[in-house]
Write a protein that binds this DNA or RNA. Sequence first.
RNA 1: GGCGGGAUUCCUGAGCGGUCAAAGGGGCGCGGCUGUAAACCGUGUGGCUCUGCCUUCGGAGGUUCGAAUCCUCCUCCCGCCA
Length: 395
Amino acid sequence: MAEPAQQAAFLTRNTVEDLPSGGLEARLKAAATEGRQLRVKLGLDPTAPDLHLGHTVVLQKLREFQDLGHRVVLIVGDYTARVGDPSGRSLTRPALSGEQIDENAATYQAQAFRVLRDDPDLLEVRRNSEWLDMRMEELFRLARTTTVAQLLERNDFAKRFAARTPISILELLYPLLQGYDSVAIRADVELGGTDQTFNLMLGRDVQRAYGLPEQCVLTVPLLAGLDGREKMSKSLGNHIGVTDDAGEMFGRTLSLPDDAMREWFRLLGFDEPGPDVGPRDAKRALGRAIVERFHGADAAAAAQAGFDRQFIARDVPEDLPTLVVVPGEDGTVHLPALIAEAFGRSRSEGRRLLTDGGVRLGGDVVRTADVSAAEVAGKVLQVGKRAFTRLEIGS
RNA sequence: GGCGGGAUUCCUGAGCGGUCAAAGGGGCGCGGCUGUAAACCGUGUGGCUCUGCCUUCGGAGGUUCGAAUCCUCCUCCCGCCA
């Protein structure tokens, strides 16, 4: 294992804050003296089933800890998810069922393993229902550790309080529950996005109140979404899922605004291309690197080839699905119906697409709703630039 | 407990009782220019058996020839006072 100072320098690369300042190095030294691994905590609430690239930034950092021999403790927030996080505007977010949480949790773990090393010495997966399903008495003890004033220091809360928008008690309790996780697993370090700084720091207070050493806090920047503005989030639809297929990953990456590209390279841990590489090629390199990480080099090459074929050569992709068409009695087919069936849109939308010139048949724009069966047989129906299906006549 | 405000289509946010499937903006779709970038331009954005018809404006009733718009009750949200 490398010297603590070197480790600290390596681990704080591309992070925003290391709190308290220099705390990580001190902790690494102490651990080295005691001859033990650090316990590095990350909590994830299994509220949505899939991880995206944004999550992998912090996972990547955890992986670095693992590579240095430290132990990652991944906490699946099954209990907190069950309560239903009331923050944000999603007033109607329903508390998830136990089964659904179990399912999500399993998916999470599987996806996290695409980044983390699944080695029992280096990874421990825990669920916070193990300790959060506590007696009132214990909750009282936890609640005594923190004052309302402390909680209101959080920017988020402060703003809402000032603006007189509602803050539920449950929301106030959330940071405490998260902090208790740190107590339960005796975290040496906790990681999170910059939006988690307050919660992570509060974990220190909670640990202290329980007579434990306080964890160090390491925050990583939030990865911007595909729009280049908001942080990546599934609900904003600006994400790339870690389970997306290779072509999807590559294509979506290319839609990233240039401004956000540098940051993506950095946060995702890829080497930036030199200054002589133009933005177009740099982004293609980024796309390949991303696909390669999750699907391998062959898939990355194939994804790029497929992309070039489809969008540069304007050719139809390989392996397109076939839709069997049954003509009407008069021997014609109704295109809006086909569009609806093939691409999951409504017939009305299909009609609009036709009049807007967004539909191609065998490469040529069609604007008529009804065409003869002979005209469509064996041809490729295309909507927009991305949706294709081959048409075959059936009976 | 008292008083007041609100619930509109993906989001936001307009909406004299008829001309409202419902303004504007955002987002998104399609088209153009391009590098599936940005910026910009055009266009569309409930459904359908589509010159019309059907279902939508928190829920249930009611008034009316006619209601997103008026009344009643209900549910939920918010603020102020206690």
